[in-house]
Design a protein around this nucleic acid. Structure first.
Length: 432
RNA sequence: GGAGAGGUGGCCGAGCGGUUGAAGGCAGCUGCCUGCUAAGCAGUUGUAGGGGUUAAACUCUACCGGGGGUUCGAAUCCCCCCCUCUCCGCCA
């Protein structure tokens, strides 16, 4: 959520920055400003009445105690009955106004950071750097689906028998490889990057989804739990960011990492990426989440992105870092780097991590603040934190990258060295 | 799922219709004092939103789990919901 005061005071530049995201992004701003103005008028009015009532009620109390003029007291009470009715009526209008105001506020996306390239689609994204190079193959590299099914470690037919389309079933060394990746990623982030591990609930209340920005606007992408006010998490970002909802934090930065499965309806993506492990209703992810001061957040975004990249480096995977343009960044994000891994079987770079700075957009929704250190003296007011998160990494897609990049002519797959300790020393996945 | 108890400020804990934003204690901060293993004294300390100011000062409103209601007036009374704890049941 944006700061209503900032919108009010800089309407023109806010509008322009929102429009750089695309056509609809600045929609509703005029109505918003009208509601904001109306709200303050009503507030002033009703608060004056409440102040009057408070004063008079005190007076009534005193008069009754002193057993003073009963008629005069009765008159005051009668008068206040009228005031009370008035207050009630205005309060109702005010509540409606505020509901509408919030409704609009919750659907306005974040302002892109000034360093974000302006553009309409992924065509305009900016490649920042490319690490490693494409592996050479003496044969035509296969896609992960063919490799995995031939090795007996991936079984899409049975997955769909169990759960329908867009689910996966891993078996044997495939299942173990997935588990090895999760542990490897967590260990690197915990031991070498200083993150604290979190294992959160996989279904959380709707207010958490509002906090991080998935609701109300992206309701159709979420799996709702029948009968209660909860949803399956689409990313660990939701529960982990909301850990500190409505809190005032002392020490920043806070760095969390969490493995969770992620559940997404992938509404609107029908026909895209239908094959294999790329786009599923359920997949595993290791997430990185940071709470930082506003001053440090962009530095911390670079660091978090580097932490995610480190996984790719240690696995020996070829990838590039892309800055998403204004038209391509997510709703809540001010700036996003995508890590795209090279998939030789598909002959393309494919997103495997998305690292974003949300600035105070989520913090305002979720009321996550900190108390700035004051070198001076007296206590300072709480300030909204900045939140940052990124995949470190998407596990299923990492498994895809390993199968496709380390496949051999004979159909086997070499296990990256760093994973071998997690695979009981296994060096190669072969047909059983 | 059944029965009971309870949710008050950073923490503990009073209050059960009228100077209570909230006693008392702890913790924190600011002074003063003292030199002996840290004590004493005084003051002070929440959050959000309006108005106001260059910025402050100042001022108003709201907040005692959440939402409604009664009342001139509610932390205090009534209704609904949520959460925690204890016992029983069930279970990994």
């Amino acid at each position: 959520m944006l700061d209503i005061k900032e919108i009010r005071n800089n309407l023109e530049s806010v509008t322009a920055r929102l429009k750089s995201r695309g056509t609809d992004a600045a929609k509703g701003l005029e109505e918003l400003m009208a509601l904001d103005e109306g709200r303050r008028v009503l507030l002033t009015e009703v608060e004056a009445l409440k102040a009057k009532r408070n004063t008079v009620s005190e007076e009534v109390g005193r008069l009754k105690k002193e057993k003073a003029d009963a008629d005069a007291t009765e008159k005051l009470i009668e008068e206040m009955q009228g005031v009370g009715a008035e207050i009630k009526a205005i309060d109702k209008k005010l509540a409606e106004c505020e509901d509408k105001l919030l409704e609009i506020m919750l659907t306005i996306p974040n302002l892109p950071h000034e360093s974000v390239p302006v553009g309409l689609s992924e065509e305009d994204n900016r490649v920042e750097r490319t690490i490693g190079k494409k592996p050479d193959f003496a044969f035509t590299p296969k896609e992960h689906t063919d490799i995995g099914e031939a090795l007996g470690i991936l079984d899409f037919d049975r997955a769909s028998k169990l759960a329908g389309a867009r689910f996966s079933l891993l078996k044997g060394s495939g299942a173990r490889l997935e588990r090895a990746l999760i542990n490897f990623m967590l260990d690197v982030h915990i031991n070498d990057h200083g993150y604290t591990e979190i294992l959160p609930p996989f279904m959380v209340k709707s207010e958490c989804f509002v906090g991080t920005g998935q609701l109300p606007k992206f309701k159709d992408d979420q799996f709702k739990i029948d009968g209660i006010d909860s949803y399956l998490i689409p990313t660990a970002e939701v529960p982990v960011t909301n850990i500190h909802r409505e809190e005032i934090l002392d020490e920043l930065p806070i760095k969390y990492t969490a493995y969770t499965p992620c559940f997404r309806k992938e509404a609107g993506s029908y026909g895209k990426d239908v094959k294999g492990l790329i786009r599923l209703h359920q997949f595993n992810k290791v997430e990185l989440v940071k709470f930082t001061t506003p001053e440090d957040s962009y530095e911390e975004l670079e660091a978090l992105t580097a932490n995610a990249e480190e996984i790719l480096k240690r696995l020996g995977l070829h990838y590039r870092v892309v800055t998403l343009c204004t038209g391509d960044i997510g709703f809540s994000s001010a700036k996003t780097y995508d890590l795209e891994v090279w998939l030789p079987g598909q002959d393309t770079f494919r997103e495997i991590s998305s690292c974003s700075n949300f600035e105070d957009f989520q913090a305002r929704r979720a009321a996550i603040r900190y108390r700035p250190d004051d070198s001076g003296g007296g206590s300072k007011k709480p300030v909204l934190v900045h939140t940052i998160n990124g995949s470190g990494l998407a596990v299923g897609r990492t498994l895809v990258a390993i199968l496709e990049n380390f496949q051999q002519a004979d159909g086997s797959v070499t296990v990256p060295e760093v994973l071998r300790p997690y695979m009981g020393g296994l060096e190669k996945i072969e047909k059983p």
